[in-house]
């Protein structure tokens, strides 16, 4: 279990990384925290010819407080984001998700951007990106653009990021004030990838009607998915457990689960529905307490 050899470059800045990537685009891979990539290389499931290491880029102001949300540089470790006061104040649901990522030893090295670009459909940060309408700042040697998270994930471990591009930062939008949120996962062991996960946000108006709702599932399709059909049934309504149970039936529209060595596709479908109800119930409770 040793990686195949490769050429190693230590990037000193994102611009430098883009230069290197442009020179080696066909064979190169970006190394950030390496908590998935190095494991895959140890198994020789991945054999990049060239690694461009961005884990030691000098990176002041990793997390910035912006008007409509919090911007996190892609190379920020998950542990730094998890303990950051601005993130804890404005995006407590993101802190909850970060705490579900593997174990604290992994989060000390794993990065926020790395988890997103790795695009494991069962991982938390791609799902949180959909929940929080995230925008990704993407850079190549010649270009810089912004892409909405919902356009980013193509299929298993595959994103719209081109081979000469680097994810620079993520803007997680702050949901309405006084919203409630919840995240639920079923995993084999604390810190394992979720067999099924679900997250929800609900915001209420003065009359107790739902004015903003997001429902996201992960581990149940080739990418994380937003259950828009569930959301549509809840907007403008006074929520109740009965309504949630009715709405959660609609998750089957986005669930495209596979059976694997752990559980069957049918199990994943059932659990997706159950966890959606739990997330909605808990999100509503938090919203009612907050307002």
């Amino acid at each position: 279990m040793k990686p195949a050899n490769f050429e190693y470059f230590r990037a000193t800045s994102i611009d430098h990384a883009c230069e290197l990537l442009s020179a080696h685009a066909d064979d190169a891979k970006i190394l950030a925290g390496g908590q998935s990539l190095i494991a895959a290389m140890n198994y020789r499931l991945a054999r990049p010819q060239v690694l461009i290491d961005i884990s030691n880029i000098d990176n002041p102001s990793q997390i910035t407080d912006e008007t409509d949300g919090v911007r996190i540089k892609a190379t920020t470790t998950q542990a730094i984001a998890e303990h950051d006061p601005v993130v804890r104040e404005r995006l407590p649901m993101l802190v909850d998700a970060l705490e579900h990522i593997a174990h604290f030893q992994i989060r000390n090295k794993g990065t926020v951007g790395g988890s997103i670009v790795n695009a494991d459909p069962a991982s938390e940060l791609p799902a949180m990106s959909l929940l929080l309408d995230a925008e990704y700042e993407i850079q190549s040697k010649s270009n810089r653009h912004v892409m909405a998270a919902e356009d980013f994930f193509i299929t298993y471990m595959t994103t719209a990021l081109q081979s000469d591009e680097v994810l620079v930062s993520i803007l997680f939008k702050e949901p309405p004030k006084n919203c409630g949120w919840a995240l639920h996962e079923v995993a084999r062991r604390a810190g394992d990838y979720a067999l099924v996960g679900s997250a929800a946000i609900i915001a209420l108006d003065d009359g107790g009607k739902c004015v903003h709702v997001r429902v996201v599932l992960f581990g149940v399709a080739s990418t994380p998915v937003r259950a828009k059909a569930v959301e549509e049934l809840l907007v403008g309504q006074v929520c109740s457990d009965e309504l949630f149970e009715e709405a959660a039936k609609r998750v089957s529209e986005v669930v495209d689960a596979e059976s694997d060595v752990h559980v069957t596709d049918e199990y994943r479908g059932n659990v997706a529905e159950v966890l959606t109800v739990r997330s909605l119930v808990d999100a509503l409770n938090r919203a009612q307490t907050a307002s």
Partner: peptide, 27 residues
């Protein structure tokens, strides 16, 4: 395990515990 699951190889890097099997020495 050499893929970050078992934790046997945990060391401290600048005071933080990390998996030394999921870190290249050059990092």
């Amino acid at each position: 395990c050499e893929h970050g699951i078992c934790g046997s190889c945990t060391i401290l890097m600048d005071g933080l515990p990390v998996r030394s099997c999921l870190t290249f020495a050059l990092q």
